[in-house]
């Protein structure tokens, strides 16, 4: 079903922008298809953020669902993007995920499922281990800037910090990563 509606939109425009899709939702002009396309485009980003901050699978899923419903409601009123949609999504998913984590702390679920663990090789495990060992503020910048591919300005917007702060945090993070023996091969080769 998802593939069909995305395909229908693709037939109208080669690759509609996020703003065009939001406008379609506001006009109720194939709003379902437009929303599905937006969800398809940004769900992996949202889920990565949700998993990082919720700490469990159910909390992450709740956060993603709540965030996209909030997006839908906002889009229906007419939403004007002033940057990438991901810079809007990031704090919304993070807050919902933090709320889910807090709920879980207050009422731990019975038989909770573990968070998804990637089936990865040694190199990737080392990379994850090194980045996960960074402090939260440095890790956020690395994730947004490198993994999600946001620009410095977009990363600053998502985090609500200055662009200079993004750069300094990234430099500090890279310095830490460079000192991590697990990543020596990357830096020696570079």
């Amino acid at each position: 079903m998802l593939g069909r509606v995305v395909g229908r939109l693709a037939a109208l425009s080669p690759e509609p922008t996020d703003q065009e899709l939001l406008d379609a939702i506001a006009r109720a002009d194939d709003g379902e298809g437009a929303f599905a396309a937006l969800y398809e485009r940004h769900k992996t980003f949202a889920m990565r953020v949700g998993r990082r901050f919720a700490g469990d699978e159910a909390g992450a899923a709740d956060a993603v669902q709540e965030a996209f419903l909030a997006l839908m409601r906002k889009a229906r009123r007419g939403m004007r993007l002033r940057g990438k949609l991901t810079t809007w999504l990031y704090p919304v998913v993070r807050n919902h995920a933090a709320r889910a984590r807090e709920r879980r702390r207050l009422a731990p679920p019975v038989g909770d499922e573990p968070a998804a663990v990637a089936d990865e090789g040694d190199d990737l495990a080392s990379v994850r281990g090194a980045v996960d060992a960074l402090d939260e503020s440095a890790r956020e910048v690395v994730m947004l800037r490198v993994v999600e591919g946001l620009s410095v300005a977009e990363t600053a917007a998502a985090l609500g910090i200055a662009e200079g702060t993004v750069k300094s945090r990234l430099h500090a993070a890279v310095r830490t990563l460079r000192a991590d023996p697990r990543l020596r091969a990357y830096f020696d080769a570079g």
Binding site: N95, A98, R99, E102, R105
Partner: peptide, 12 residues
């Protein structure tokens, strides 16, 4: 009704 940390995340 609500309580939040420094970064406005809700807290118990």
């Amino acid at each position: 009704m609500a309580a939040g940390a420094r970064d406005a995340t809700p807290i118990g």
